[in-house]
Design a protein around this nucleic acid. Sequence first.
DNA 1: TAAGAAAACCTAATTACTTCA
DNA 2: CGTGAAGTAATTAGGTTTTCT
Length: 366
Amino acid sequence: MELGLSLGESSRTSFTFLDKGNTNKMNNKGFGFCMGLGLSSTLNASEAERKENGGNEREERNEKRVSAECIVTQPLQLDLLPLAPVPRNNSSQGLPWLSENGNSEAGSTGQLGGSVRGFDVNMFPSTEDVEDGAAVSSPNSTVSSFQIDFNIYKSGSGNKRDSETAGLNDVDAERTSSRASDDDENGSSRKKLRLSKEQSAYLEDSFKEHNTLNPKQKLALAKQLSLRPRQVEVWFQNRRARTKLKQTEVDCEYLKRCCDTLNEENRRLQKEISELRALKTSHPFYMQLPATTLTMCPSCERVATTTNSTTNNNHHNNSNTSAENSTTTTTTTTNNNTPIASAFSLTKPRFYPFVHPHPHQSAAPS
DNA sequence: TAAGAAAACCTAATTACTTCA
DNA sequence: CGTGAAGTAATTAGGTTTTCT
């Protein structure tokens, strides 16, 4: 069961459990504020991916849990990805977990074996890879189809020049080497490693595909980018945090606007109340009408008056005149005659039968 | 079968470092 | 050159879920 809270234009609300037949009942004009509570069965995407990855049961469950969260956050999902596409080598088609052929191990080990060494700002994750199992190649490895040709970063006699070719300036190259040595000398000090543009771009691409990683994806990315799996994990955690922060800011802005709108509406209503009171004082007979039920005309969305003794024309034969609504309260109906909270229709114009007789009304008070 | 420990993962908050104006 | 703000990698604390004994 999910509880979704979305801010945005109600017409664009994309909760899966709200999409099915309910969105058209919302007010499609102006701001929307939607809360959804329902069951979701939209885990098929992750399920298919899991089958493709051959993940274990834990991964399945984790992905399902994550996917359920994504459903809630998706309606206002921000696209924080870089606009410019990440340049890729021909051999790097897609992300590792999107691989259709995950067993081309020769290419994997062949490229990763030494091509990345001069590229990363970090040490090659040999020890942790062993701990996490990344260094152990398997026939099911998904790394191979995600090959980035890091040969341009390959270290050697032309290290500096290669770094420049790859977009790394002298500072980057210097930093890379100095940090590597620092890590060697003092492993206890806290290092703030700056990811390269290429690394960040690929992580962004990965995040675009999946904002969470299963262990296999994490290891594949770490190996591909020559990062420690922990670094990839941390990057995704921070990335999710940034996304959420941005989303919160957007939500706050939207709430402010909603608040302003409601305040304005409130002022307008207060003014109307004052005017009506003044009108009642000057023309008291207007207020001696019988008990009236206000219903919304389904076609023209205007309020029609239905007194207990009044007959409507055919256009309004469907007006709700049940006992529970035969009070002086205003009942707003939709095209399906389903009552919705009138609070969602605050921006709709209000019609007072004694001020604006409805054209469909057969007997409008004069 | 129930209970508890351990592992893995997550979020949220915070720290620490880097970059830049 | 020094400095503060912003961005972000990394750490920490605490929670949840699953697995194992």
